[in-house]
Amino acid sequence: MEYFIELFLSGLTRGSIYALIALGYTMVYGIIGLINFAHGDIYMIGAFTSFIVATVLSIYGFPMLSIIVLAGLAAAVWASAYGYTIEKLAYRPLRHAPRLSPLISAIGMSIFLQNYVLLAQTSDFLPFPELIPEFDFIEPYAHVVGSAEIVILITTALAMILLTLVIKFTRMGKAMRATSQDRMMAMLTGINVDRVISTTFIIGSTLAALGGLLIASHIGQINFYIGFIAGIKAFTAAVLGGIGSIPGAVLGGFVLGLTESFATGYVSSDYEDVFAFSLLVLILIFKPSGILGRAEIQKV
């Protein structure tokens, strides 16, 4: 039973990270219908930026709390700056191109970013400073749950609530929903669609950077390649929940996280990634619209 709870909690933790990244995929897909392949690499850049800032600050002897705040801020700022720039350089010129063109461009961007970080930094795994302290009250349960896991769960929940509020109640959120329903109509009602798309990329990138910071400080090491696998898995989560649907991305993230956690715990840990990929292939084959998604009707 204890093993079950441990697996369940670690599944939730994984799942919440997947959900954070999946939100970026799903929002971008909902608005411009593009699988932003480079999204996983934005997450990696977020993790790297926070790693650099946190390490520099800890070398210069800043207090722990300020390090957490500054590293988080830096990760969010730079990840969203990258997200914004990528959209402008690689996707905006292709908005009216055939469907495959922006996807190929996104794949290129992903490869570019990976190698950029590889060349600028290093190909080795880097030890990430432990940012989340061990709480005292968790001591008696330390064998099933770590304080990092609790922090991750709470932060993700807060981020998701905030996002829902933004999308439901702010002007920008309304504009986003309008754009995703019908871009042309939104333009005609005076919505600056370019700005909405940029904002979507910025929000998505911030969430991914948050995920990057949390998971990196939980696992304790980062590398230029973490974005690729995480990106694919988050995409799986987004598709699982129904791409384009925000609650779907969260649900998909948790389902994927739990599946992976139990599969590696009870079956075999060698095939961890195979489970995720197989799940992706199976959903796409049998229910491409996902759990909460609407089936796309093709009109002629």
Partner: peptide
């Protein structure tokens, strides 16, 4: 055969998934 029904961009991701699955199986 199974991916025929999928539209372009989904197809890309599924083929990517297949490629990775085959490699991972070979590795393990």
């Amino acid at each position: 055969f199974p991916v025929l029904r999928l539209r372009g961009d989904y197809l890309a991701i599924v083929t990517l998934g297949f490629g990775e699955i085959i490699r991972l199986v070979m590795e393990n």
